[in-house]
C-alpha cells in the first residue's frame, strides 16, 4: 500500500478528500473536530531517518476584531508543548512552549491551560498510546508575507488574521512499519485535544470579554 492509502485506511470514514501540497498530504476531514490534517515526512538531521509531522489548524474565529486580537494575545500566553520522559515507557507532561519564551521573551506565560491539560487523564492516556515525540500547541499563524517563521509569529501577534490554534505532533524515526496505527492514534489524540482546546478557548473568550 502507498503512503496515502495507509493514511486513508487509518482515518477511515473521517476522510473527506486528500491532496498533495508541497511536501505532504493534506487530508480534509468530516465528522471530526478537525477540519484538516497535513501529514508530511521530513528528513531528520544528517541521517536518512524520517520523522512524521502532523499539523492541524484549529480555527476559532475567521474574522478578527479588536476583541479577537486581545483574545489571540491571551491565547499566545498559554502556548504549551509536551515534555517526554522515560526510555522504554514514556511519561508526558505539559509545559510552557519553548517557542513562546524564545520569540516573545517579554510575554509572561499563563499556566491555566497547562494545568488543565496536565489534569486531563484521558489526554495523558491518549498521549501514552500515541507515543508521540513532540506535540506543540501554538496560536494560529501562517508564513504568508513573512521573511521567517519568527517574523510570521510576531506579525500575527500584532495583527492576527484568524483566531485559532496550530497543533503540531511529531513522531520520530522507526515509524515506517507501524505507520497505519500511528496515524490512527495520533489522529485520535489530536481530535480529543482539539475538543479540549475549543472548550478552553470559549471559556477564555468569555473571561476576556468580562474583563
Amino acid at each position: 500500500m502507498s503512503e496515502l492509502e495507509v493514511i486513508k485506511l487509518a482515518l477511515g470514514k473521517n476522510v473527506d478528500s486528500a491532496s498533495w501540497d508541497l511536501d505532504g498530504w493534506v487530508i480534509l476531514l468530516k465528522d471530526s473536530r478537525l477540519r484538516s490534517l497535513k501529514i508530511s515526512r521530513r528528513l531528520v538531521g544528517i541521517s536518512f531517518d524520517w520523522e512524521w509531522h502532523f499539523v492541524t489548524p484549529l480555527i476559532i474565529r475567521e474574522v478578527v476584531d479588536d476583541s479577537g486580537g486581545q483574545l489571540y494575545r491571551e491565547m499566545k500566553r498559554r502556548e504549551v508543548q509536551i515534555r517526554r520522559r522515560g526510555i522504554f515507557r514514556y511519561s508526558y507532561e505539559w509545559v510552557t512552549s519553548e517557542l513562546l519564551s524564545k520569540v516573545f521573551p517579554d510575554v509572561a506565560p499563563v499556566d491555566d491551560l497547562m494545568i488543565r491539560l496536565n489534569r486531563n487523564n484521558q489526554l495523558l492516556r491518549l498521549l501514552k498510546r500515541s507515543v508521540v515525540d513532540e506535540l506543540h500547541v501554538n496560536t494560529y499563524f501562517d508564513l504568508t508575507g513573512a521573511s521567517s517563521p519568527d517574523d510570521a509569529l510576531r506579525k500575527h501577534y500584532e495583527s492576527p488574521k484568524m483566531i485559532g490554534w496550530l497543533i503540531t505532533a511529531i513522531k520520530g524515526p522507526g515509524s515506517e512499519w507501524r505507520f497505519g496505527p500511528i496515524v490512527k492514534r495520533i489522529y485520535e489524540l489530536l481530535d480529543f485535544l482539539a475538543g479540549e482546546l475549543i472548550e478552553f478557548t470559549r471559556e477564555l473568550e468569555s473571561r476576556a470579554l468580562n474583563l
Partner: peptide
C-alpha cells in the same frame, strides 16, 4: 541509538551524534 534517542530526545541526539 534507540536508548539515546529515547533518553535525550531526537533533537539533542542529532546535535551530538556527529
Amino acid at each position: 541509538k534507540v536508548i539515546m534517542i529515547r533518553t535525550i530526545g531526537i533533537r539533542r541526539f542529532e546535535s551530538y551524534v556527529i
